[in-house]
Amino acid sequence: MNITLRVWRQANAQSEGRMVTYQVRDVSEDMSFLEMLDLLNEDLTIKGEEPVAFDHDCREGICGTCGVVINGTAHGRGNSPVATTTCQLHMRSFSDGAVIDVEPWRAGSFPVIKDLVVNRSAFDRIIQAGGYVSVNTGSAPDAHANAVNKRKADRAFDAATCIGCGACVAACPNHSGMLFTAAKITHLAMLPQGQPERGLRIKKMVSAHDEEGFGGCTNIGECAAVCPKEIPLDVIGQLNRDLISSLFSRDGK
């Protein structure tokens, strides 16, 4: 099949970007979206033009590196029958002759580095603020020292499947990072190991989130709709609940 791509090209963070149109020929429907971009890049390289920069690594939907907005939805969720990362979206989801818009995550907290590549280090800084259990190597008790309620363990797991790709921020009309933050909050809040720091953690992580310039959550739900790991919106409910109860605790005062 043949595809027309309109791709965001931007030389670096300071420069202005624009959409550039390319034709990609002989696309197989078994290709992943990124393999189609590889094909475009091989073609551009041979012509002596600079290939389109895009982030990608594992190409099996788990590392969270890849992510572009395709036809207006993060990871091309609007074109995919199931939740997906960009690398797991396949060209069979498009028809021959399709015109496809490809843009980077757009959010003030994710500045563009080049073309489709953005800087997501704000997420790391949110984790640095408290997204961990303070346990030094070697100081752990036996793994069976704490039994964990199965329902809570499962909920912790559902939240812990977050791959930190940033689709939630890209899709959110407010560009809020709340689903990402809440996924980590919920993961650790459901486990006994996460309890001692629970009150302090949420205060620190939410304020780090706000300091990074992410927008506020207005419970719209676009984040959960594009999340490749289907992190449910209710983790944000958990975050809010914990945040309110933390206001009545002395942690961090």
Binding site: S139, P141, A143, A153, Q193, G194
Partner: peptide, 14 residues
């Protein structure tokens, strides 16, 4: 295993 559980790694549980 002890270390990972203490960090909050959500291993499968019964």
């Amino acid at each position: 295993i002890d270390q990972c559980v203490a960090q909050g790694v959500p291993f499968a549980r019964e």
